Computed example of a mutant assay.
Amino acid sequence: MTTDGPPAAQNPAGLRERKKLATRQALSWAALRLAQERGLEHVRIEDIAAEAGVSPRTFNNYFANKYEAIVSRHVDRVRQSAGALRERPAAEPLWDAVRHVALAPFATADSSPDPQWTAGVRLLLAEPALQGELMKAGADANRAFAAAVAERTGTDADRDVYPNLVAAAVLAAQQVASDRWLHTEPPVALLPLVREALDLLLAGLPDPTGG
C-alpha cells in the first residue's frame, strides 16, 4: 500500500496545467465540430464557448479567434509529442523514439471515419482564413519538435539543420497521411496511414519501383 498523497496534493501546478489543457482541447474540439457542421462563417465565439461549457471570456483567455482554436489541436498534439520525446530513455535510438512519439497521438484513430465528417473537414480546410492560421500553427509545431530533437541530439535548433530537418520530415509524414485520410474513398483509418508514412521515412524513402 502506498503512502503517497493524491496527485493534486503532490503537484497542484501540474493539476492546474492538466485542467487548462483539457479546457483548451474542449474549446478546440467544439470549434472544429461546429465549423464542420455549420460552416466556418456561421460559427461565433459564443457558440464555441457554449458548446464547451465555458464563458466567451474563458475562450478569449485561450484563443484570439475561432481559426486559432481549430488549428490548435495540431500544435498541441506536436507539443505533447515533443514532451514525450524528452522523456524517452536516453539509450533509445533517436528514430525509434521519434517513431514512438509521432504515432502515439493517433493510437485511437484505428477505425474508418464517417464520410460526412471527412467531407466537411475538406471543405473547412479550403477556407483561406484557416489556411493562413494552419501555416502559422505548422511553424510553431515545427519549432517545438525541433527543440526536443535538439535536446536529445546535443544540437542547436536555432543554428543547426539537423533537428529542424527531422522535425519537418516527421510533421510532413503526418501531414501526408492526414491528407490521404481525408481524400481516400472509401474512408480508411488514420493510424495505418501515419504508420506507413513514418515507416517509409525511417526506411529512407526507398524507390517503390525497386530501381
Score class of each variant (00 low, 15 high):
residue 120 G to Q: 08
residue 198 L to C: 09
residue 73 R to W: 06
residue 139 A to F: 13
residue 103 L to D: 02
residue 142 N to L: 15
residue 102 A to E: 08
residue 62 Y to N: 12
residue 158 D to W: 13
residue 110 D to M: 06
residue 179 D to K: 04
residue 12 P to M: 10
residue 139 A to K: 11
residue 144 A to N: 06
residue 85 L to R: 09
residue 166 V to P: 01
residue 118 T to C: 02
residue 143 R to W: 10
residue 198 L to V: 11
residue 53 G to W: 11
residue 171 L to R: 09
residue 58 T to S: 10
residue 195 R to C: 04
residue 209 T to H: 14
residue 131 Q to Y: 05
residue 79 R to Y: 04
residue 132 G to W: 03
residue 163 P to A: 05
residue 3 T to L: 14
residue 185 E to T: 14
residue 185 E to I: 04
residue 133 E to N: 00
residue 158 D to H: 13
residue 149 V to K: 01
residue 46 E to N: 13
residue 17 E to G: 05
residue 193 L to Q: 15
residue 186 P to W: 10
residue 99 R to Q: 15
residue 38 R to P: 01
residue 101 V to W: 00
residue 188 V to F: 03
residue 66 K to S: 14
residue 134 L to K: 08
residue 140 D to C: 01
residue 183 H to F: 13
residue 73 R to M: 10
residue 59 F to E: 02
residue 83 G to K: 07
residue 203 A to K: 08
residue 67 Y to G: 10
residue 143 R to T: 08
residue 206 P to D: 12
residue 56 P to W: 02
residue 140 D to I: 05
residue 179 D to T: 14
residue 204 G to Q: 09
residue 63 F to K: 01
residue 116 Q to M: 10
residue 64 A to C: 06
residue 210 G to E: 11
residue 199 D to P: 12
residue 41 E to F: 00
residue 83 G to F: 01
residue 136 K to V: 15
residue 18 R to Q: 15
residue 106 F to K: 01
residue 62 Y to V: 02
residue 104 A to Y: 10
residue 7 P to L: 10
residue 143 R to E: 06
residue 35 A to L: 06
residue 101 V to D: 05
residue 78 V to E: 07
residue 48 I to P: 04
residue 185 E to P: 00
residue 53 G to Q: 13
residue 83 G to E: 15
residue 109 A to Q: 14
residue 78 V to W: 04
residue 141 A to M: 03
residue 32 L to S: 08
residue 91 A to C: 04
residue 57 R to A: 15
residue 137 A to L: 04
residue 200 L to K: 12
residue 115 P to E: 03
residue 56 P to Q: 03
residue 61 N to R: 15
residue 124 L to F: 10
residue 143 R to P: 00
residue 59 F to P: 05
residue 40 L to D: 03
residue 159 R to W: 07
residue 89 P to C: 11
residue 78 V to M: 05
residue 136 K to P: 00
residue 150 A to Q: 02
residue 185 E to F: 00
residue 130 L to I: 09
residue 63 F to I: 06
residue 157 A to Y: 01
residue 161 V to A: 15
residue 167 A to Y: 01
residue 173 A to T: 07
residue 55 S to R: 09
residue 21 L to Q: 15
residue 186 P to V: 09
residue 69 A to C: 10
residue 198 L to D: 02
residue 74 H to A: 12
residue 96 D to A: 13
residue 88 R to E: 14
residue 14 G to I: 03
residue 105 P to D: 06
residue 201 L to V: 12
residue 40 L to W: 11
residue 152 R to W: 03
residue 64 A to K: 14
residue 38 R to D: 07
residue 107 A to Y: 08
residue 89 P to I: 08
residue 60 N to R: 15
residue 9 A to W: 04
residue 192 P to M: 09
residue 128 P to N: 11
residue 11 N to H: 11
residue 185 E to R: 11
residue 94 L to E: 12
residue 43 V to Q: 04
residue 61 N to K: 13
residue 11 N to S: 15
residue 112 S to V: 06
residue 42 H to Y: 07
residue 27 L to K: 09
residue 64 A to E: 14
residue 207 D to L: 08
residue 120 G to E: 09
